[in-house]
Protein backbone atom coordinates (compact mmCIF):
# COMPACT_ATOMS: atom_id res chain seq x y z
CA UNK A 1 0.00 0.00 0.00
CA UNK A 2 1.19 3.48 -0.63
CA UNK A 3 2.98 4.95 2.32
CA UNK A 4 3.36 1.57 3.98
CA UNK A 5 1.82 0.16 7.13
CA UNK A 6 1.88 1.27 10.72
CA UNK A 7 2.58 -2.03 12.42
CA UNK A 8 2.11 -2.26 16.14
CA UNK A 9 3.39 -5.46 17.70
CA UNK A 10 2.18 -6.39 21.16
CA UNK A 11 4.65 -8.75 22.73
CA UNK A 12 5.27 -9.51 26.36
CA UNK A 13 7.89 -11.40 28.25
CA UNK A 14 7.64 -14.88 29.66
CA UNK A 15 10.06 -16.96 31.69
CA UNK A 16 12.64 -18.76 29.56
CA UNK A 17 10.67 -21.92 28.71
CA UNK A 18 13.52 -24.13 29.84
CA UNK A 19 13.22 -23.00 33.44
CA UNK A 20 11.60 -24.94 36.23
CA UNK A 21 8.33 -23.21 37.09
CA UNK A 22 6.48 -23.54 40.36
CA UNK A 23 3.51 -21.58 41.62
CA UNK A 24 3.81 -19.45 44.74
CA UNK A 25 1.52 -17.10 46.61
CA UNK A 26 2.40 -13.49 45.91
CA UNK A 27 1.11 -10.34 47.58
CA UNK A 28 -1.63 -9.86 44.99
CA UNK A 29 -2.44 -13.44 44.10
CA UNK A 30 -0.67 -16.32 42.46
CA UNK A 31 2.88 -15.81 41.21
CA UNK A 32 5.83 -17.87 40.14
CA UNK A 33 8.43 -18.93 42.63
CA UNK A 34 11.53 -16.74 42.25
CA UNK A 35 9.75 -14.92 39.45
CA UNK A 36 12.18 -12.02 39.26
CA UNK A 37 15.15 -14.40 39.12
CA UNK A 38 13.88 -16.37 36.17
CA UNK A 39 15.52 -15.36 32.91
CA UNK A 40 12.98 -13.73 30.64
CA UNK A 41 12.49 -14.18 26.93
CA UNK A 42 10.15 -12.67 24.42
CA UNK A 43 6.96 -14.69 24.33
CA UNK A 44 7.64 -17.19 21.54
CA UNK A 45 4.55 -16.45 19.44
CA UNK A 46 4.97 -12.72 19.93
CA UNK A 47 8.52 -13.28 18.70
CA UNK A 48 7.21 -14.76 15.48
CA UNK A 49 4.85 -11.78 15.25
CA UNK A 50 7.70 -9.32 15.67
CA UNK A 51 9.87 -10.99 13.06
CA UNK A 52 6.99 -11.24 10.60
CA UNK A 53 6.12 -7.60 11.26
CA UNK A 54 9.69 -6.53 10.56
CA UNK A 55 9.71 -8.60 7.40
CA UNK A 56 6.46 -7.09 6.22
CA UNK A 57 7.70 -3.59 7.01
CA UNK A 58 10.83 -4.26 4.99
CA UNK A 59 8.82 -5.34 1.98
CA UNK A 60 6.40 -2.42 2.18
CA UNK A 61 8.32 0.84 1.87
CA UNK A 62 7.27 3.55 4.27
CA UNK A 63 6.17 1.08 6.94
CA UNK A 64 7.17 1.39 10.55
CA UNK A 65 7.16 -1.06 13.45
CA UNK A 66 6.34 -0.15 17.03
CA UNK A 67 6.78 -2.78 19.71
CA UNK A 68 4.49 -2.30 22.68
CA UNK A 69 5.56 -4.37 25.65
CA UNK A 70 4.54 -4.53 29.26
CA UNK A 71 6.72 -6.07 31.95
CA UNK A 72 8.82 -5.14 34.95
CA UNK A 73 11.18 -2.46 33.63
CA UNK A 74 14.35 -4.31 34.62
CA UNK A 75 13.17 -7.42 32.80
CA UNK A 76 12.20 -5.46 29.71
CA UNK A 77 15.61 -3.87 29.68
CA UNK A 78 17.23 -7.27 29.86
CA UNK A 79 15.05 -8.55 27.03
CA UNK A 80 16.00 -5.61 24.86
CA UNK A 81 19.66 -6.59 25.16
CA UNK A 82 18.93 -9.82 23.31
CA UNK A 83 16.01 -8.81 21.09
CA UNK A 84 17.28 -5.34 20.25
CA UNK A 85 19.73 -6.77 17.76
CA UNK A 86 17.18 -8.74 15.79
CA UNK A 87 14.96 -6.30 13.91
CA UNK A 88 14.42 -2.53 13.82
CA UNK A 89 11.56 -1.20 15.95
CA UNK A 90 10.54 1.63 18.16
CA UNK A 91 9.79 0.52 21.69
CA UNK A 92 6.76 1.60 23.68
CA UNK A 93 7.38 0.26 27.17
CA UNK A 94 4.95 -0.16 30.04
CA UNK A 95 6.34 -0.91 33.47
CA UNK A 96 3.95 -3.49 34.88
CA UNK A 97 3.45 -7.11 35.69
CA UNK A 98 4.25 -9.78 33.12
CA UNK A 99 2.55 -12.45 35.16
CA UNK A 100 0.31 -14.91 33.41
CA UNK A 101 -2.10 -14.75 36.33
CA UNK A 102 -3.27 -11.21 35.64
CA UNK A 103 -6.59 -10.45 33.99
CA UNK A 104 -6.18 -10.21 30.23
CA UNK A 105 -8.83 -7.48 30.02
CA UNK A 106 -6.76 -5.26 32.31
CA UNK A 107 -3.61 -5.90 30.30
CA UNK A 108 -5.53 -5.16 27.11
CA UNK A 109 -6.82 -1.88 28.51
CA UNK A 110 -3.28 -0.74 29.33
CA UNK A 111 -1.95 -1.79 25.93
CA UNK A 112 -4.82 -0.13 24.08
CA UNK A 113 -4.23 3.11 25.92
CA UNK A 114 -0.51 3.00 25.15
CA UNK A 115 -1.22 2.33 21.46
CA UNK A 116 -3.72 5.17 21.30
CA UNK A 117 -1.06 7.46 22.71
CA UNK A 118 1.51 6.70 20.01
CA UNK A 119 2.01 10.00 18.19
CA UNK A 120 1.24 10.01 14.47
CA UNK A 121 -0.17 6.49 14.47
CA UNK A 122 -2.51 6.22 11.50
CA UNK A 123 -5.32 3.78 12.23
CA UNK A 124 -6.18 3.45 8.56
CA UNK A 125 -2.72 1.91 8.03
CA UNK A 126 -2.66 -0.05 11.27
CA UNK A 127 -1.74 -3.71 11.50
CA UNK A 128 -2.04 -4.71 15.13
CA UNK A 129 -0.01 -7.86 15.54
CA UNK A 130 0.82 -10.15 18.44
CA UNK A 131 1.13 -13.79 19.36
CA UNK A 132 -2.18 -15.65 19.12
CA UNK A 133 -1.59 -16.82 22.68
CA UNK A 134 1.08 -16.23 25.27
CA UNK A 135 3.26 -18.80 26.93
CA UNK A 136 2.16 -17.41 30.29
CA UNK A 137 -1.61 -16.99 30.45
CA UNK A 138 -2.10 -18.83 27.19
CA UNK A 139 -5.59 -17.40 26.77
CA UNK A 140 -5.54 -15.79 23.36
CA UNK A 141 -7.72 -12.99 24.73
CA UNK A 142 -5.60 -9.90 25.10
CA UNK A 143 -5.10 -9.03 21.46
CA UNK A 144 -8.80 -9.43 20.68
CA UNK A 145 -9.73 -7.03 23.44
CA UNK A 146 -7.09 -4.51 22.38
CA UNK A 147 -8.61 -4.73 18.90
CA UNK A 148 -12.11 -4.21 20.30
CA UNK A 149 -10.94 -1.23 22.30
CA UNK A 150 -9.44 0.27 19.16
CA UNK A 151 -12.60 -0.50 17.21
CA UNK A 152 -11.04 -3.07 14.88
CA UNK A 153 -13.47 -5.78 13.80
CA UNK A 154 -11.31 -7.50 11.22
CA UNK A 155 -9.44 -9.90 13.42
CA UNK A 156 -7.54 -13.09 12.66
CA UNK A 157 -6.08 -15.64 15.05
CA UNK A 158 -3.56 -18.44 14.62
CA UNK A 159 -2.19 -16.77 11.53
CA UNK A 160 0.71 -18.41 9.70
CA UNK A 161 0.86 -16.11 6.69
CA UNK A 162 -0.09 -12.58 5.68
CA UNK A 163 0.51 -11.47 2.13
CA UNK A 164 -0.20 -8.20 0.43
CA UNK A 165 -2.05 -8.75 -2.82
CA UNK A 166 -1.66 -6.69 -5.95
CA UNK A 167 -4.85 -4.74 -5.25
CA UNK A 168 -3.56 -3.86 -1.81
CA UNK A 169 -5.83 -6.30 -0.02
CA UNK A 170 -4.39 -8.62 2.60
CA UNK A 171 -4.60 -12.38 2.31
CA UNK A 172 -4.38 -14.24 5.60
CA UNK A 173 -3.98 -17.90 6.47
CA UNK A 174 -5.41 -18.87 9.87
CA UNK A 175 -5.01 -22.22 11.57
CA UNK A 176 -8.27 -24.09 11.90
CA UNK A 177 -9.22 -27.62 12.85
CA UNK A 178 -7.78 -30.62 11.07
CA UNK A 179 -4.37 -29.17 10.38
CA UNK A 180 -5.93 -26.85 7.79
CA UNK A 181 -5.66 -23.15 7.16
CA UNK A 182 -8.65 -20.91 6.54
CA UNK A 183 -7.98 -18.36 3.82
CA UNK A 184 -9.42 -14.88 4.22
CA UNK A 185 -9.01 -11.71 2.26
CA UNK A 186 -9.40 -8.34 3.92
CA UNK A 187 -9.63 -5.32 1.70
CA UNK A 188 -7.62 -2.94 3.87
CA UNK A 189 -6.27 -2.19 7.34
CA UNK A 190 -6.85 -1.82 10.21
CA UNK A 191 -6.66 -5.48 11.15
CA UNK A 192 -5.70 -7.53 14.18
CA UNK A 193 -3.42 -10.51 13.59
CA UNK A 194 -2.68 -13.13 16.24
CA UNK A 195 0.35 -14.96 14.93
CA UNK A 196 1.05 -18.64 15.24
CA UNK A 197 4.51 -19.65 14.08
CA UNK A 198 4.63 -18.48 10.50
CA UNK A 199 7.59 -19.48 8.44
CA UNK A 200 10.38 -17.08 9.25
CA UNK A 201 13.40 -18.22 11.22
CA UNK A 202 14.67 -16.07 14.06
CA UNK A 203 16.73 -13.29 12.48
CA UNK A 204 20.46 -13.21 13.25
CA UNK A 205 21.84 -10.77 15.75
CA UNK A 206 22.85 -7.60 13.98
CA UNK A 207 24.92 -5.26 16.15
CA UNK A 208 24.20 -2.31 13.91
CA UNK A 209 20.46 -2.77 14.35
CA UNK A 210 21.17 -3.08 18.06
CA UNK A 211 23.00 0.21 18.23
CA UNK A 212 20.25 1.88 16.21
CA UNK A 213 17.43 0.49 18.35
CA UNK A 214 19.20 1.36 21.58
CA UNK A 215 18.94 5.05 20.83
CA UNK A 216 15.18 4.83 21.25
CA UNK A 217 14.96 1.82 23.57
CA UNK A 218 16.71 3.36 26.55
CA UNK A 219 14.66 6.60 26.49
CA UNK A 220 11.50 4.51 26.06
CA UNK A 221 12.41 2.47 29.11
CA UNK A 222 13.20 5.58 31.07
CA UNK A 223 9.78 7.07 30.37
CA UNK A 224 7.94 3.75 30.73
CA UNK A 225 4.67 4.40 32.49
CA UNK A 226 4.01 2.38 35.61
CA UNK A 227 0.85 0.34 35.12
CA UNK A 228 -1.08 -1.58 37.73
CA UNK A 229 -2.68 -4.71 36.40
CA UNK A 230 -4.25 -7.22 38.72
CA UNK A 231 -6.43 -10.27 38.70
CA UNK A 232 -9.66 -8.31 38.27
CA UNK A 233 -12.73 -10.33 39.12
CA UNK A 234 -10.71 -13.55 39.12
CA UNK A 235 -10.47 -15.53 42.30
CA UNK A 236 -7.82 -18.23 42.22
CA UNK A 237 -9.08 -21.09 44.36
CA UNK A 238 -5.86 -22.99 43.80
CA UNK A 239 -2.82 -23.09 41.55
CA UNK A 240 -0.78 -26.26 41.62
CA UNK A 241 1.64 -28.35 39.68
CA UNK A 242 -0.04 -31.31 38.04
CA UNK A 243 0.25 -34.69 39.58
CA UNK A 244 2.71 -36.17 37.18
CA UNK A 245 3.95 -39.34 38.71
CA UNK A 246 2.68 -42.40 36.97
CA UNK A 247 3.90 -45.76 38.01
CA UNK A 248 5.93 -46.62 34.96
CA UNK A 249 6.29 -50.27 34.08
CA UNK A 250 9.77 -50.60 32.68
CA UNK A 251 10.16 -53.40 30.18
CA UNK A 252 13.85 -54.09 30.01
CA UNK A 253 14.44 -57.66 29.05
CA UNK A 254 11.77 -58.36 26.46
CA UNK A 255 12.65 -59.16 22.86
CA UNK A 256 11.82 -56.85 19.99
CA UNK A 257 9.17 -59.33 18.92
CA UNK A 258 7.50 -59.36 22.33
CA UNK A 259 7.53 -55.58 22.57
CA UNK A 260 6.17 -55.15 19.07
CA UNK A 261 3.34 -57.57 19.75
CA UNK A 262 2.43 -55.85 22.97
CA UNK A 263 2.37 -52.44 21.28
CA UNK A 264 0.25 -53.67 18.39
CA UNK A 265 -2.24 -55.26 20.78
CA UNK A 266 -2.41 -52.06 22.78
CA UNK A 267 -2.97 -49.91 19.70
CA UNK A 268 -5.72 -52.18 18.46
CA UNK A 269 -7.37 -52.54 21.86
Amino acid sequence: MSGGYHIVVCGGIVPDPLQTLEPAVGPTGPALRNEMMLPAVLDPWAGHALFEAANLAKSQPGSKVWWVSMGPKAKLQQLMMSMGQKVPFELVALDGSASGFTESAEVAAALAEAISSIPDLDQSRLLLIGGWESASRGAGSTLQIVGERLGIVDQFQGVDEVSVQEDGSLKLLERVEGGKHQISVCTAPPIVVGWATGKLPEPPNNPQIGMMNMRTVMPALQRAKAVQVGTGSLNFVSVRLPEQRRSTRIVKDATVEEIAQEIVEWIKD
Binding site: P23, P30, F101, A135, S233, L234, V237, L241, P242
Partner: peptide, 20 residues
Protein backbone atom coordinates in the same frame (compact mmCIF):
# COMPACT_ATOMS: atom_id res chain seq x y z
CA UNK B 1 -19.10 -22.45 39.90
CA UNK B 2 -15.40 -23.20 39.54
CA UNK B 3 -13.50 -23.80 36.35
CA UNK B 4 -10.13 -25.38 35.75
CA UNK B 5 -7.57 -24.18 33.25
CA UNK B 6 -3.85 -24.37 32.70
CA UNK B 7 -1.23 -21.66 32.94
CA UNK B 8 2.29 -21.34 31.59
CA UNK B 9 1.87 -23.76 28.74
CA UNK B 10 0.32 -26.59 30.70
CA UNK B 11 2.91 -26.34 33.44
CA UNK B 12 0.44 -25.56 36.25
CA UNK B 13 -3.25 -25.94 36.76
CA UNK B 14 -5.53 -23.39 38.39
CA UNK B 15 -9.05 -23.54 39.72
CA UNK B 16 -10.83 -20.22 39.19
CA UNK B 17 -13.97 -18.43 40.22
CA UNK B 18 -15.27 -15.11 38.97
CA UNK B 19 -17.15 -12.55 40.95
CA UNK B 20 -18.35 -10.64 37.89
Amino acid sequence: LKVTRWYYRQRMQAVLQRSS
